[in-house]
């Protein structure tokens, strides 16, 4: 029996990348590069969404959008060179072509956060997927309560978007704390894991949402610290990372228990992950 023809409305194949050019490339720390890519006819994105970026002949990886959602002139992605594809991406220069599919996934709960305090906890490169949320929070500052950003990195040289953090500190109504794992003698800031900063953050229990992004072990400790500080599981949002090939729920790689991270995430409310984050090798 053949399938019904209404299922065959073949829209644009989501697996075919659009060819885009790099508008600008700049270093953002060790092995870390921010690429501005021409947007073409890309749909607007939500803070927390990602694109699939291809280097032709090398491969494709998921990369979060790290720029402002209101910036329609460029799609900004911050990439660390860790594998063959991400390394090739960081070596692209202005004017070169790459492939782009997206945006995919859901985003941070910006609407739910209105009227609430927001605590953003970023481990390392985890600040990149949070930056669009920060832009939106700051551009609509009056809609939100107290905003706090906690950023942990390995060393002062690894602090992501360092100059921008300084500017936010100076000009914007946002509390920012930065901590490093390893400090040189001239470092005057916090030393230690980012989760330790959580207990010192003033926020209104019962009226606060937390956005957490970073290595999974860091997110586990962040959840524990946030809960110690009085937040409920239903107010803690995480951005998950898994191997991804298709980004549209076909390839199966990004499964995390019952969810497809690409399709149902990457942002999840912690209570909806059913405690799976505490199990190994899920």
């Amino acid at each position: 029996m053949a399938i019904q023809s209404d299922k065959l409305a073949l829209a644009h194949d989501p697996m075919t990348p659009r060819v885009m050019r790099v508008l600008k490339r700049c270093h953002d720390g060790p092995q870390t590069v921010t690429l501005d890519i021409e947007p073409g006819d890309s749909a607007p994105f939500q803070p927390g969404q990602f694109n699939m970026l291809s280097v032709f002949g090398v491969g494709e990886v998921p990369i979060s959008l790290s720029g402002a959602p209101t910036d329609h002139d460029r799609l900004r992605h911050t990439i660390r060179a860790v594998g063959p594809v991400s390394t090739a991406l960081t070596r692209l220069s202005k004017g070169e072509c790459l492939g782009l599919r997206g945006p995919f996934g859901n985003g941070w709960p910006m609407q739910q956060a209105e009227g609430h305090d927001v605590v953003l906890v970023a481990g390392g490169l985890g600040l990149a997927p949070l930056r669009p949320a920060i832009y939106q929070l700051l551009s609509e500052r009056e809609r939100y309560g107290r905003i706090t950003l906690l950023h942990g990195t390995r060393s002062p040289a690894d602090i992501l978007f360092h100059r921008e953090i300084m500017a936010w500190r100076r000009h914007r109504n946002i509390d920012i704390e930065v901590t490093v794992d390893h400090a040189p003698p001239d470092w005057r800031g916090h030393v230690g894991v980012v989760t330790r900063l959580i207990s010192s953050v003033p926020f209104e229990t019962g009226n606060t949402l937390a956005f957490v992004c970073g290595p999974e072990v860091m997110m586990r400790f962040a959840i524990a610290a946030l809960k110690d500080a009085g937040l409920g599981d239903e107010t803690i949002y995480l951005s998950m990372e898994r191997n991804m090939k298709c980004a549209v729920g076909f390839c199966g790689h990004c499964q995390f228990g019952p969810v497809f991270v690409c399709r149902d995430g990457p942002v999840f409310r912690h209570d909806r992950l059913g405690g799976l984050l505490n199990l190994k090798e899920i």
Partner: peptide, 21 residues
């Protein structure tokens, strides 16, 4: 799995459309 969600697998859809079982 391949046709029931937001996205459709175009190759699977094409191979399924003219089946006689």
């Amino acid at each position: 799995v391949l046709l029931g969600g937001h996205y459709r697998d175009v190759h699977y859809a094409a191979r399924r459309q003219d089946n006689f079982i």
